[in-house]
Design a protein around this nucleic acid. Structure first.
Length: 424
RNA sequence: GGAGAGGUGGCAGAGUGGUCGAAUGCGCCGGACUCGAAAUCCGGUUGACUCUUCGGAGUCACGAGGGUUCAAAUCCCUCCCUCUUCGCCA
């Protein structure tokens, strides 16, 4: 959520910035709503003030044993007026909140213009693309051997976009997750966290998935309803919801492995083949909560932490700076890491590292006490995939295949594979 | 799932219709005393919001939401959560 004050003082600036995303903000409607709010709020508070002082007078009169009936007569109609004003105010305020909740974050100045992913800017490239003296297979063909990657079984058990991994492939995914967790806890200073995979609506509102993106979520009925997490970002970032952190608690750095559940409502027909886009996948998420002044540096650092994993696995990748139109709703600036997939001859997203600045923090009411001011102020939140484990598995398969369709285990994963060097 | 108890400030814990944003203790911050510290004493110590002639004035919040009342932490209803206990269970 953006700062409502910004809309009062910098309406033109906000409108202009939102336009970069292709978001048409109705400044006129907002200004109209805001001026009504002001009127009604002042009126409501005046009435409340009157009620309070008169009630107090009645109390005092009664204590002295005076006749309170004349005083009671005076306040007879106050209640109705007040109730009406309060209802009107509540209505206006919820309209304003509803409007604000659907407005995306303002982009960082360094984010390039552009409508879609074609305008993303390549920042850097790492690794040497593997050369094959045969035509490299994609992960679906490689995984089909011995039915280690079984989409038919996934469909039987659950439906489309689910998969079953067997034997060495299941273990390989676990090894990948272990490497990531060990790297981030052992070398990058993150603390490992285990969280619920079902969360409430407040948590999803806090990180920005609700109310706008409910269709992308799996909902579990109940009272209250719960949602399967689309990413560990939701529970992990919500650790600081409604918390005033001490300055010395920052930066807060957490790493969390979890499954992620996405209904992929907006992706019918995209990536239907293979494990690229599933309703359920494993991911290791890194999250930082930092002082506002530190977030830009933290964003670079966190992105590096994700890159290190790719480098340990010797997987070629490139870093992309997302353009205005491709940057997510809550993010001010996002780097995507794209890994080379030789089976398809393309780079594919394997990590997304975002700086949300105070956008999530405002929704979360996540603050820290700034020692310089002594006041609670909003923190900045960041997160990144470090990395998507399912897609990392794909990348390992495709990059480490040989002519016979065997997979060599990357050196960094050998300690986790129990002596296995090849998947035959 | 059954039964019972309870949710109040950073923590503990009073408050059962009015002068209660809330006693008291602890903690924390500042000051006094001291060479310094401890002890002791004094003062301070929730957050959000609105208006403003920038001096200040006011509103909201006691798990959440609704209701009764001139007036609700306090009474009523619904829900959520925690604890104890029985059952079941990885």
């Amino acid at each position: 959520m953006l700062d409502p004050k910004l809309f009062r003082t910098e309406l033109d600036y906000v409108t202009e910035q939102l336009a970069r995303r292709g978001f048409a903000f109705d400044a006129e409607a907002y200004a109209e709503l805001e001026s009504r709010r002001k009127d009604v709020q002042v009126r409501t508070q005046d009435l409340q003030n009157e009620r309070n002082s008169r009630s107090k007078a009645i109390g005092q009169a009664k204590a002295k044993g005076e006749d309170i009936q004349p005083l009671m007569d005076q306040v007879q109609h106050l209640g109705d007026q007040l109730r009406q004003a309060e209802n009107e105010l509540a209505e206006i305020q919820s309209s304003i909140t509803a409007m604000l909740e659907y407005i995306p974050n303002i982009l960082d100045v360094s984010v390039p213009d552009g409508k879609n992913e074609d305008s993303n800017v390549e920042i850097s490239r790492w690794g040497v693309l593997p050369k094959f003296d045969f035509t490299p297979k994609d992960h679906v063909d490689l995984g089909a051997r011995n039915k280690r990657m079984d989409f038919e079984l996934g469909a039987k058990l659950s439906g489309a976009r689910f998969v079953v991994l067997n034997g060495a492939l299941a273990r390989l995914q676990r090894a990948i997750i272990q490497l990531m967790l060990d790297t981030h806890t052992g070398e990058h200073g993150y603390s490992e966290t285990y969280v619920p995979y079902l969360v409430n609506a407040d948590s999803l509102r806090g990180t920005g998935q609700l109310p706008k993106f409910e269709a992308d979520l799996f909902k579990a009925d109940g009272n209250p309803p719960l949602y399967l997490i689309p990413t560990a970002e939701v529970p992990v970032t919500n650790i600081v919801r409604d918390v005033i952190l001490d300055a010395k608690e920052l930066p807060l750095k957490r790493v969390c492995h979890s499954p992620c559940f996405r209904s992929e409502a907006g992706a019918y027909g995209r990536d239907v083949r293979g494990m690229i886009r599933q309703h359920q996948f494993e991911k290791v998420e890194i999250v930082q909560v930092v002082r506002p002044d530190d977030s830009e540096r933290a964003h670079e650092e966190l992105t590096r932490h994700a890159e290190v994993v790719l480098e340990k696995l010797n997987l070629p990748y490139r870093r992309m700076l997302l353009c205005a139109g491709d940057t997510g709703f809550s993010s001010a600036k996002t780097y995507d890491l794209e890994v080379w997939l030789p089976g398809q001859g393309v780079y594919r997203e394997i990590s997304s590292c975002s700086n949300f600045k105070d956008f999530q923090a405002r929704r979360l009411q996540a603050r820290w006490r700034n020692p310089e001011t002594g006041k609670p102020e909003l923190v900045h939140t960041l997160n990144g995939s470090g990395l998507a484990a399912g897609r990392t598995l794909i990348a390992v398969l495709e990059n480490y295949q040989d002519a016979e369709g065997r997979i060599r285990i990357p050196e960094a994963l050998l300690p986790y594979m129990g002596g296995l060097e090849y998947i035959e």
